[in-house]
């Protein structure tokens, strides 16, 4: 089963961290990537640019309109993700808990839908 580990970021909180604490976060991500590569559980990952750089696209009456900024304004935003494949939801949560951001904000662990299915 594949899971998305969703990393939430709170910039106000992040600004209160010392440089050493921030370095530790980046270092912990490197460690995490090394670990899940070795276990064969890593499927993919990405870090996302700041939402202030986002464009939001809406199509109304067939006409697209592009505005600057994110769709949802909130204190926390989606900062990046990992896709992992593991044997149980418990293992996925265990991997989520290894991410440094879990100490600061939270990691949301959500199953990725499968394209296969059984007839009922």
């Amino acid at each position: 089963m594949k899971y998305l580990l969703i990393i939430y970021m709170n910039p106000t909180l992040f600004e209160t961290l010392s440089e050493a604490e921030r370095d530790a976060i980046f270092g912990a991500h490197d460690e995490f990537q090394k670990l899940v590569k070795e276990t064969g559980e890593l499927v993919g990952f990405a870090a996302l640019a700041d939402p202030s750089t986002s464009k939001t696209v809406r199509v109304r009456d067939e006409a697209p309109a592009v505005t600057d900024g994110p769709y949802i304004e909130a204190k926390e935003f989606l900062a990046g993700y990992y896709v992992v494949e593991c044997e149980s939801p418990e293992r996925a949560a265990e991997l989520g808990a290894m991410l440094p951001d879990a100490k600061l904000t939270a990691i949301e662990v959500r199953a990725i839908m499968e394209s296969g299915g059984m007839e009922m």
Partner: peptide, 10 residues
């Protein structure tokens, strides 16, 4: 509750 797309659709 299902994690299968075709099952969900059904």
């Amino acid at each position: 509750r299902t994690t299968s797309l075709p099952e969900q659709r059904y």
